[in-house]
Design a binder for these strands. Structure first.
Lengths: 337, 337
DNA sequence: CTGAAAGCGCTAACAT
DNA sequence: ATGTTAGCGCTTTCAG
């Protein structure tokens, strides 16, 4: 593994020039630059990121902290971030903070702070004030995805509006008895996302004068199984069966469709179902939903960090609110249709 | 951010001693060791991994290369590896090699080789001979998960045996007309996994004298949708409908269950279905399957690397073949039952 | 058991 | 435009 020295020798210049030619910092004549590059290629030279980091204080690496990896939303955000990071010449190191407090503290103290990363992306994770400030004190920008973090630039969809949109879709079809499957306390996650969605749902109903019926709410854990169980409950009672269900996640909505089927109900004939996410399975199940775009969210988070890390580069307009979009498939229709 | 110097001063020793006390290399009297540790804690000192790596040549970081992240198998392996790595004091940096050849080469040349990692875990990815040897040349151990890599220690279940086991389960229930949904060329992935499973399926049939009927094979892409479509095909023809289906992945098996349902067939009454994986949704669908344990595979991969990275440490018996296990749920039963 | 000092491989002033 | 020269913060001989 050749060092910067052999390159310098082969190109007949100093190591400083090699460094400049290869990094693009400082001026180097076109001629020498190409000579250096040729030499580097010939030798198969590649900089030692450690030496470089030590000298510059920058690591070209960002840390991503995340509570789970094997869920559609999280892994999609990470994928988006990874792609974008790669294209900026950055690496991504992953910290799975699912563990309890101990593991979590250890990650913060021994890993993130080891000067391994230039910045961190926190996905659906509520960092404590002290965690945030210790990072900020070290001059490491943070951006959150999926929920507000005190004192941190955060990307997240407007959950209340998303829920409103879904509910309004149902209302516009003529539904008046609309149930909601939301989150239980366990899933309140760190950001009260379930509450926001419930609030949006209720707001949409109230806006058209429909009273909130607590009997039309059920809590679940955002999974397909959970949604199935909750829907059985909601749809099983023929006396007060709603004509439509708004589930706070697509997985729960799919569970609802399956539950309806098992109850002998037809979707959307007997009951309309809408979710939130545009999960990879939603298209298959014909589920109407309000899509969000996690990979794009990951990408956007990276853009924001790059702007902070390289204040010189022209910041692309970066305050567009996060996109969401109603996707109507075959699980929603006029009641009694 | 205090450096090793301030710790040395506060503890009244030299930086060399601090280094030894904190890293555990070399002898330090118990007394000074604890004094140093106290000082380090008091100052909130944490080593600079870059400086340390530069000096030692070790990074305490392993690279994981992977073709996708948002699939159950991959993200589970990564989760398992991450946990294990963390407990060994290692970080994990993630490289998503889904892209085409260009992006892939760039990862290899500019990232992995940048001396960022001490080792690499390749998940279901066929590295080229030159990729492998360039890593090995730099003395970076590699371990593969999910398929054999030339010249590399690899972890993977015995796909042929897995398929045989699944098929034998069906046979033992009395099925004689057993269809198989395997992979198409796109999914041949890098490792001919679909072929191995098909071979195992055929071997099981032949062992009991059942001729292979090409009409009972269908190819799909390992997804739920793909399985659904293939199953519609296989089960839709009443003249030669099999009494059981062995799908090469749980997602396809679930698609098969849904297809059967839509065809008005009862599972397992009219058709038994078995898959491979024990996917997170399988339990919900009552799917019988041959489970594999991806998180454990990730963990095991890390153990193997640690053995190579720290040859001194007592290697835990490490040649247990990868575990798989038949899980019988409600999707399989005697034919006509 | 502990200290002094020489790097690890690069970058960034500072010169020229 | 290019070369010289100090470090970046730690580890590790080599002495003692």
């Amino acid at each position: 593994m050749p060092g910067i020295n052999e390159v310098a020798v082969l190109a007949g210049v100093s190591t400083a020039t090699v460094s400049r030619a290869l990094s693009g910092n400082g001026h180097v004549s076109a001629a020498t630059k190409s000579r250096v590059k040729a030499a580097a290629v010939e030798l198969g030279y590649v900089v030692s990121s450690n030496a470089s980091s030590l000298a510059t204080g920058r690591t070209k690496n960002v840390g991503v902290v995340i509570p789970f990896l094997n869920r559609w939303f999280f892994s999609s955000v990470v994928e988006g971030a990874e792609h974008s990071l790669l294209s900026h010449g950055y690496d991504l190191t992953l910290y799975n903070l699912s563990g309890n407090g101990d593991e979590r503290r250890s990650v913060f103290e021994h890993f993130l702070l080891r000067k391994r990363v230039d910045a961190v992306i926190a996905i659906s994770l509520e960092l404590t004030a002290s965690e945030v400030s210790s990072l900020l004190d070290m001059n490491k920008p943070i951006v959150g995805v999926g929920g507000p973090l005190p004192g941190v630039r955060t990307l997240s969809i407007d959950d209340e509006q998303v829920a409103r949109l879904a509910t309004e879709h149902l209302l516009s079809l003529g539904h008046r008895s609309i149930a909601h499957i939301g989150g239980n306390n366990d899933v309140e996650l760190d950001f009260h996302l379930p509450t926001h969605r419930r609030v949006g749902y209720e707001a949409a109903l109230e806006a058209v004068g429909i009273p909130i019926d607590p009997g039309l709410f059920a809590a679940a854990d955002f999974t397909l199984q959970g949604g199935y169980r909750a829907a059985k409950q909601l749809l099983g009672n023929p006396r007060k069966r709603p004509t439509a269900v708004f589930a706070a996640s697509d997985e729960m909505a799919i569970g609802t469709i399956l539950a309806a089927r098992d109850l002998g109900l037809h979707v959307p004939g007997d009951v309309s179902v809408i979710g939130v996410d545009d999960h990879e399975l939603s298209d298959f199940f014909g589920l109407s939903t309000v899509a969000q775009f996690p990979a794009e969210q990951g990408r956007r988070a990276v853009e924001i960090l790059m702007d902070q890390l390289h204040p010189d580069r022209r910041a692309p307009a970066s305050n567009i609110p996060l996109r969401f979009e109603l996707i109507v498939r075959s699980s929603t229709a006029r009641p009694g249709g």
